[in-house]
């Protein structure tokens, strides 16, 4: 009986030692940090991994990024679960500001979208310069197209192209039009697996390694321009929001130093994002 007790005590101590202090230390580890709701493209392209250490070293503010689609990121910020919103769909961002969730939206940088597709190019759209016309040909050829289908910024941009092409792609959902309902990377994985076309942001495409037969088929159309905006969530809607530290991050991103850090980020000596905080109307 005594041995049992000793064994039990030992096991309990072991578990308690493992679990409890860890829990406590996790609770207190958070001293000065902000939460940024952002998109999968900024996270998965590696941009944040490059930017955040520079900002954290300068200010001592830890930046915690929750990377989801633009639609979900806006929802998170509206619910007060993020201090800063950093996404890429200007109409939605302006709606966010108009609703009073943020005082001001600032342009930060842009990159561009590219249309990727299989080398065999069944819709014969390679090197076309008009994205909407290319989409029309994809629909006419009933060539497989992998859509994000997740209300992300990229998905919204893609829907605008279908509209411009005069094609109701969702009517073919499940046939040649495949909605993955997931992030950029998983959608590219799906496209690579089924030799489908897809619209991708260039940053994610450049850092994406599982390309299989995929290559860029359409690029350089001015309509493929992809603008990112940033805004600190306002205290007016959510009093707990860390507006000062959030604003510090926003200010840094649009400062000459932050803009230079964005321009410095390269993969295989290719620049991924182009700072344009000072460009009027961006």
């Amino acid at each position: 009986m005594r041995q049992r007790r000793i064994l039990l005590a030992a096991a309990t101590t072991l578990l308690a030692a493992l679990a409890l202090p860890a829990t406590l230390s996790m609770a207190s580890a958070a001293d000065r940090f902000i939460t940024v709701a952002s998109t999968t493209s900024t996270e998965q392209s590696g941009l944040f991994k490059h930017l955040l250490p520079i900002f954290e070293k300068k200010t001592g503010i830890e930046v915690r990024v929750v990377a989801v689609g633009t639609g979900q990121a806006i929802k998170l910020a509206e619910k007060g679960d993020a201090d800063v919103l950093f996404v890429h769909h200007k109409p939605s961002e302006e709606k966010f500001v108009a609703a009073g969730y943020a005082a001001k939206r600032l342009p930060v940088m842009y990159n561009d979208f590219v249309v990727v597709g299989p080398k065999s190019d069944p819709a014969k759209i390679k090197d076309m310069k008009d994205t909407a016309a290319a989409f029309k040909k994809v629909a006419a050829a009933k060539a497989p197209f992998a859509s994000r289908g997740d209300k992300s910024g990229t998905h919204l941009a893609e829907q605008a192209f279908w509209k411009a092409a005069g094609v109701d792609a969702t009517a073919a959902s499940g046939q040649w039009y495949r909605e993955t309902g997931s992030g950029m990377g998983p959608t590219l994985n799906t496209a690579a697996g089924m030799d489908a076309y897809a619209l991708a942001d260039r940053g994610t495409w450049l850092s994406f390694t599982n390309r299989k037969n995929l290559e860029i088929v359409v690029e350089g159309d001015p309509k493929l321009f992809n603008q990112y905006g940033v805004m600190a969530v306002s205290k007016a809607k959510h009093p707990h929001v860390k507006d000062k530290d959030g604003q510090a991050f926003v200010d840094w991103l649009v400062s000459p130093e932050g803009q230079k850090a964005i321009a410095d980020y390269k993969i295989n000596s290719q620049q991924l994002f182009f700072p344009n905080a000072r460009q009027a109307g961006a």
């Binding site: 990377g185 998983p186 994985n189 690579a192 390694t209 599982n210």
Partner: peptide, 8 residues
Amino acid sequence: LETAKGEL
């Protein structure tokens, strides 16, 4: 995340 990045 690594799957999403295509780093299979």
